[in-house]
Design a binder for these strands. Sequence first.
DNA 1: CCACTTTGGCAACAGCGTTGCGTAAGTGCA
DNA 2: TGCACTTACGCAACGCTGTTGCCAAAGTGG
Lengths: 371, 371
Amino acid sequence: MNRGKGNVSGGGGGGDRAGGRGGVNLPALRGYNEALLLDLLRSAGAPGLGRAELAARTGLTPQAVSKITARLAAEGLVAEAGRGASTGGKPRTLLRLVPQARHGVGVHLDRDRIRAVRVDLAGGVVDEWSGPLDFGAGPDLVVEAVLAAVVRVRARGAAAPPVGVGVAAPGPLDWRSGVLGPVTGFPGWAGFPLREVLETRLGLPVALDKDTNAAVAAAGGPGGTGSCVYLHVGTGLGAGLRLDGVVYRGARSAAGEFGHQVLRLDGPPCRCGGRGCLEVLCLDAVARGDLAGAARLLGEGAANLVALLDVDRVLLGGRVVAAEPCVFVEGVRAVLEARALTGEPPPVGLAVAGVAEGAAALALGPLFGHG
Amino acid sequence: MNRGKGNVSGGGGGGDRAGGRGGVNLPALRGYNEALLLDLLRSAGAPGLGRAELAARTGLTPQAVSKITARLAAEGLVAEAGRGASTGGKPRTLLRLVPQARHGVGVHLDRDRIRAVRVDLAGGVVDEWSGPLDFGAGPDLVVEAVLAAVVRVRARGAAAPPVGVGVAAPGPLDWRSGVLGPVTGFPGWAGFPLREVLETRLGLPVALDKDTNAAVAAAGGPGGTGSCVYLHVGTGLGAGLRLDGVVYRGARSAAGEFGHQVLRLDGPPCRCGGRGCLEVLCLDAVARGDLAGAARLLGEGAANLVALLDVDRVLLGGRVVAAEPCVFVEGVRAVLEARALTGEPPPVGLAVAGVAEGAAALALGPLFGHG
DNA sequence: CCACTTTGGCAACAGCGTTGCGTAAGTGCA
DNA sequence: TGCACTTACGCAACGCTGTTGCCAAAGTGG
């Protein structure tokens, strides 16, 4: 292992990922530093960064940065982009990411639709396609649908193949093994090794994750280091957690069960067996047409979560939210404001990027050292 | 930076810790791999591990492991410990950690007591001392008390100084800067740079953290990789989170506010301004003498948390729990059992190691690459 | 016009894990 | 008892990493 030679994605640590951390050898170190610089350049965005600035941020010497960026430039991932203002000496020659150098594909499997996007390294959508889907039709048909969707957005001709394909599916699923669980309403999926099947059929690395996790991966934007939660209100309630910049999935990939927190002991019974779960209360309010009330309830749940995890930002999404975005954003914000323990509550916003974009971001993750 | 030469603690990544990740150079790589092997040997415990086994677990070559362990042996951190059983060839010569090679000191500042321990590398308590403390007497007196406590447990004579000193204090406090916040009941502490002051006075690295974080760091035991929560019931309610093996502190070091989750909308008012917080409900039950009811309420809050974070293990501690441990463990366990969404609920136990031991573990963290 | 600052490349270097190969020390079978 | 085989592990040479020393380029400011 750790024979990564010439490929940027070779970094990350090596070793078996079962259990503890792996050892680091020189190819892994090289890959890590390359990914680190790529990540910094991606975060920096348009104007670009000078080599000296990269050196200061990473703690590497300017000479090392020059060597590494030269390798990245040789691979076409990085290019010079004019000069910056002088600070009393020679002006820095700016470097920027070349977004078109590589691509990633993301696929969102919803219960009744499929959407696929192809994104460049900057996260911009280059191509997209969506169509109907019957998730309940079972693995075989859905696999074919995914393959067809990937073909539709995949670059044709001589262009390089995508770095990887990210697939976002309804939970529960085991992220480590890539195997689906008993999806609510579609128990027939339980135990299907979707990631493995897709990797074989596509011949590409596949990242399979829950839709909420994909959403929060995209929502965070590139290179985010803070903590952020995505709250989804649709058929059910779910949460995606990005803690200290990385998606948190929990010991058994089951983290994010946000809807079954009890908000009202002795409240109405929930399908989970409990009573007074946020999901029951919130969806009941939605069914009654009381969106403001639903938003307040969602806010209470969000406030519990904000207090526990001290997050930077709260993002909302899902079909119910999309119907009346402002009502939900304002309702949640008001509750967070009222329940803030100290200081400012975290800002509340709408998840702008889609789930498919998030899945693509997960597929590109290893390139930037987030895999 | 990154000039670590000959010192094991030099690893970890280097670079400024503000913002993103740092770059890795050769000294940092060396330190990382040394810490990794030390961590594996610590986790392995008594019988020891062979070099070949270390190589298999890390992904490094056997030759690299031999070189690294030779360096560690030269520093006295590792020693050979007999031979293992043969598996068809030459039997492996076992290596084990030398617990006495280094020490760490942990100090627990409670509201009315101070306790200090000295632990060896295996986490075993070598020396301990405790005495009364008036945390409200203010920073100056408490700093003197800490210094005195460290002197009492510190190894005398020619022994090497401790690797570091960990201090656990009531929150809120800012872990990154080492500055205390407005501690509940003792607002005079707000803004006091305890870590900096102690580092100057002691001449040793100091790790300052919330008591709940220290508790969960110890509770996890050495080298844990799963997710674990520690729930504290004392004057208030608090939680320490260890997610994927590392202590999670949140964006502003405020994570773990477990007591102010709303369990009963329109319940009794709480000092935080909300209504029906777990803390109010639970402590009211305690005040009424209804410990079983308090345990059930704690269980409901724990179940919310378990569902959200998918933790492996739940640990209980604090004076209220200590009064009737079995009632709380059984009560929480019963609720988790009833509210388990799928599969087995995580086991519930008592936090056996103390907070001071956890503080010491935080001080030893950098040695094992957990800093 | 010149001193100064800052950027960034070339070449030699120290140090990391890796490769190739030899030796030590067991097991298993005839 | 003898021999083939397996496994563990060290020595020496090596390739590749980031680092250091030095120098050219390209600005600013008096």
